[in-house]
Design a protein around this nucleic acid. Structure first.
Lengths: 193, 193
DNA sequence: GTCTATATTCCGATAGAC
DNA sequence: GTCTATCGGAATATAGAC
């Protein structure tokens, strides 16, 4: 049962995906959520509060769909899990588009906004560590520092490709191919030390 | 001798580096340039005109510092040239910071702004092709399509790392190390076909 | 908690003198 | 070409009833 706050945050994710962080107007958000502007200020204090909580909401939601797998599916190899986790961010579904464009917006906004930096850094760290762990399952004998570097590169590349995809620079399937190519390159580098 | 327009564009680059494309206020730009707001409208028609010309200004400037090398410097190996060209975007100088943050802003804005897409796509293509050519000088026997893919990955990674650097997610020297690691990985993949 | 006003602030843009 | 002054619209935020 979605609370009012959640309902507003879901609407905020949609509006940000459509207009960007700077393009988010409280009034448009109110319309999208089907509430009054005053209610938004009541729940979130001010526009910045909406932004901050939306970032948190989005990164939680990304974890959720990263984790979700249907019971009874065939078990995945470690490499499949790795590739799946990365490719999840490059899909043309509404939710992924929302998350990816909101994420890109927040990253870009954080360059000029101290307030967003901290939350963003923490979310990024979690994500890098998750990918490093998956890499470690594929190449168990690789040293932790190499795994960490590879994970940082793959996630940064994913962000870069995601931006290009969203800004029309590359097609989705090509972005996916490029990412898989990088996974190849990183894994063979990890294997040969 | 800097014309008035140039003076305003230089100021715009500084303001964008500080506040972002989205944060650029005509009034603040006027103050930074030491002119009145009316003069800005006189020279650039409207705020969008300022943005458009500033982006052009910035990408010209980036080409200039990419190309610039002192005469009499020892000649560079192809690999040094490649690494140099990529690392130029990861330096802590005012000009590079301005260029990188403006570029990141442009990319992020293009997600929500059709008008910017075209210019951006063209500039990106030039940049990718330049990197592909440099890769080709390092690994001459590599097929063109592989060179192109590697160049796309390296430039996308560079954009991702640049954003993380500017948003405080990684330190500069670490971003540089990560990028060099990716160059390694791409080159060895290219060599072994 | 939620809404209907409305106040307030900010900012892009223009008019008109010099 | 450049400035001072200001307009008008848009967006954030609040007051106060229910």
């Amino acid at each position: 049962m979605a609370s009012r706050s959640t309902q507003i945050l879901e609407a905020a994710a949609r509006v940000i995906a459509r207009r960007g962080v700077r393009g988010l107007r409280v009034e448009e958000l109110a319309a999208e959520a089907g509430v009054s502007t005053a209610l938004i200020y009541y729940h979130f204090k001010d526009r910045t509060g909406v932004l901050r909580q939306t970032l948190e909401f989005i990164s939680d939601r990304a974890e959720r769909y990263t984790a979700g797998r249907a019971p009874g599916d065939p078990p995945l190899t470690p490499r499949e899990e790795l590739e799946g986790a990365l490719l999840l961010e490059l899909q043309d579904t509404a939710e992924v588009r929302e998350n990816s464009s909101a994420w890109g917006e927040l990253r870009a906004s954080a360059v000029f906004d101290e307030v967003l930096r901290e939350d963003l850094a923490r979310a990024t760290l979690d994500w890098v560590q998750e990918v490093a762990a998956l890499l470690g399952r594929v190449v168990p004998m690789a040293p932790a520092s190499s795994l960490a570097s590879s994970a940082e590169r793959l996630t940064a590349l994913l962000e870069g490709l995601s931006m290009r995809w969203l800004s029309g620079g590359v097609r989705l399937h090509h972005a996916r191919d490029l990412l898989l190519g990088a996974v190849d390159a990183e894994l063979s580098a990890l294997r040969q030390g």
